[in-house]
Amino acid sequence: MPPLNYFVVESPDPVGREAYERITGDVLQDLDLIKVIDRLHIYVDPKVPIFIAAGVLRHMPRSIRVGDFANVNPGEKLIVLDIGDETYLAPLLRELWAHYGKENVDQPDRFTIVLPAGVVGEEELEQMVVADPSETLHKDIIYALQYIAPEGFKVRRQYIKDEKFYYVASEDTLPGDIVETMVVPIFAKMGVTL
């Protein structure tokens, strides 16, 4: 199971509890979220029926800058960008086009981008923010919880802010005070106040 600092699955049905422990492990592993989540507590009771997942994230990944994945080589006439990792190439091109115009951005091959000298300084280019992984992270976490929860539990309430998140789902209408009555005590078990 994932190296989370705290991971508990609670359920009155022992077989289901074990199954959900494995499902959670598999899903978090598949979506590559193990490193992101610090603490996670899941409570699922099919009799009510209710599914609650509450947890705390580790600190968010920082923004990706040009210098993180490319070498900037300023020359007399040209600035040559030597791309080390293609993952962020598409957003990088989009940024460069937006800033310097398509006519100034040339990509002679997959791993090289050429800009005319003088449009931008070396330091400025290296520090240019290309992508912010935390933007998609929130979506990924909610998707993972949706994926873990029983499919029939279509009525749901989700929350993710700063480092805390919860996801409550049921087949029936959720009571208005569900967060106060059920989610807050789960956070308390993890030593966190919502």
């Binding site: 049905d13 077989v15 289901g16 199954a19 959900y20 499902i23 029983p150």
Partner: peptide, 13 residues
């Protein structure tokens, strides 16, 4: 000729 029902985890469900 036959149907295999692939059901889930909870006895209750």
């Amino acid at each position: 000729d036959l149907a295999v029902y692939v059901l889930g985890n909870f006895e209750e469900c």
